[in-house]
Write a protein that binds this DNA or RNA. Sequence first.
DNA 1: TCATTATTTCAATAGTTCTTGTATAGTTGA
DNA 2: TCAACTATACAAGAACTATTGAAATAATGA
Lengths: 117, 117
Amino acid sequence: MDKLAATLMFESLSSGIRLDIYRLLVKAGPDGLVAGDIATALALPPNNTSFHLKTLTQAGLLSATQEGRFQRYRANMRLMTELIDYLTAECCTGNPDQCADLSLPVSNCCVSNETTP
Amino acid sequence: MDKLAATLMFESLSSGIRLDIYRLLVKAGPDGLVAGDIATALALPPNNTSFHLKTLTQAGLLSATQEGRFQRYRANMRLMTELIDYLTAECCTGNPDQCADLSLPVSNCCVSNETTP
DNA sequence: TCATTATTTCAATAGTTCTTGTATAGTTGA
DNA sequence: TCAACTATACAAGAACTATTGAAATAATGA
């Protein structure tokens, strides 16, 4: 994870529409969704949906595969974890005690399926 | 964590300069840094530094406290963990097996001080 | 008080992004 | 082959963001 890749990912997620798309695909899991279903689910015009899907894909947050005339998109969860790792790298260097109370809740994913309050 | 807050945070981190500032402050830990030190460390003009610090603070990623004529900034780590939680909420709903191999590396923070490869 | 230092604010400009409409490419099935 | 469907590409205009220089605010110390 380098700085350029990280800024690309953040820029991608800085749009409400793209954030909706990404979270929809995280929720959809490994099966992903085809472009038309995404557009329908979020009530977006197809060309605008395509625009945002392209942005997310170029940032690496989504992967796309062709299925006949459909285009299936999936969230790249692994890249997300790398981004998080990049952000928190060298956290409190030399002073682990000082931020030990953070109790990072991230690993809730796939441990509990309840949404956090 | 609502959508507006999340997009604000992502928008803040989508600039290379602001990403540098944030990571510098994560590394600095609870002591934070004053604005001038941040500008010096990143070789930025003071007014531009102020511009980006304001953006990060408005997004909630930084907190600012006055110290005489200095302004001290600190990273808000807890908000970051909330953002991550928001992103991965309902991950693979109903299919926990399918993404169980993610082995989220986030909790590296404050467990190991080594930078990840 | 007055000069100095630290930081922020404001205005102007250049560059970028988002949305919409239109057109195009590729796939499917009759 | 032809028509219908899925999805993307392109262009134009409005709206937004980043950078810079100049000025303002506020605290410190001689």
